[in-house]
């Protein structure tokens, strides 16, 4: 029996009167790569943001490695956690943004060591050694003293991946990691993500790259209008979709 790393149960989320997520269930096993596909406005990003509690859910719950995110259970009540405790939980969840969101006033190395030192209280010397190894892993060992604005978009996103990995998270979440990149830079970022997938990192990736999904996903989830329309291995969802909506979407993006 493989351990469940991420579990989403009946997630509902509305912004005002607009219901973005209408009861989504999702289970990610340890070491599994789940790719979420869907048209824009389908709720993909919102769903991903509920996993690390950047977005509070209206109904349902999220748990990571058996730990409830954002709440504490006491008897038959759920107590909302203080922000301090939510921040601590987030150190187990790596998040990579569409727009990188590197800290522009810090060097590449400072970006990577910031959270392990300030959030996990680990010694700087030790973290620095690891950070350099991570930068080498994403192919940027010679850029540690550069500022983010001196890097290309692809390089910035690779730093952002190293920054997320530095916390040694249990799961990595990617929110359209290549959507803000020039076409010729997409490959270098996808290569890094593929490498992580092969090394057994648990990942949930929201993307528009169907080719990438086919290559690395263990499970493809097709989301539309706030519900999971279809999910399964790529060979099934991408090559032999059962649902008409999935087929319609794939015919547009392929």
């Amino acid at each position: 029996m493989v351990q469940v790393m991420v579990e989403l149960r009946n997630i509902h989320k509305s912004f005002g009167t607009l219901e973005v997520l209408k009861g989504v269930d999702l289970r990610v096993r340890a070491g599994e790569v789940v790719v979420i596909l869907g048209p824009s406005g389908s709720g993909k990003s919102t769903l991903l943001r509920t996993v690390n509690h950047l977005e509070k859910v209206d109904q349902g719950y999220v748990s990571i490695d058996g730990e409830l995110i954002g709440y504490r259970r006491a008897g038959d009540k759920l107590h909302e956690l203080h922000e301090r405790e939510v921040l601590k939980q987030r150190t187990h969840i790596g998040f990579v943004f569409q727009n990188f969101n590197l800290f522009p006033h810090l060097t590449v190395l400072e970006n990577v060591v910031e959270a392990p030192v300030s959030a996990q209280r680990r010694p700087l010397a030790e973290v620095r050694v690891e950070a350099r190894a991570l930068l080498a892993r994403v192919g940027l060992e010679d850029k540690e003293d550069a500022y983010p604005r001196h890097l290309s978009g692809g390089q910035q996103q690779r730093v952002a991946i190293a920054r997320a990995l530095a916390l040694q998270p249990k799961v990595l979440l990617f929110d359209e990691p290549t959507s803000a990149l020039d076409p010729e830079l997409v490959g270098e970022v996808l290569d890094v993500i593929k490498d992580l997938a092969r090394s057994g990192t648990t990942m949930v990736v929201v993307t528009h790259e169907v080719g990438f999904a086919r290559e690395v996903a263990d499970t493809v989830v097709f989301l539309d209008a706030g519900v999971v329309v279809e999910q399964g291995p790529p060979s099934q969802v991408l090559d032999a979709p059962k649902q008409a909506r999935t087929r319609a979407f794939l015919s547009k993006v392929l």
Binding site: N52, L54, E83, R84, L87, K88, Q89, R90, T91, I93, F95, F97, N99, N101, L102, F103, E114, A115, S118, A119, Q120, R163, A164, L167
Partner: peptide
Amino acid sequence: GQLEAAAALGIPKTRQFRRI
């Protein structure tokens, strides 16, 4: 996005303000 990134990394609140 800077605040979101800091929050997603779990950086403590006062540190987010002073450092980021």
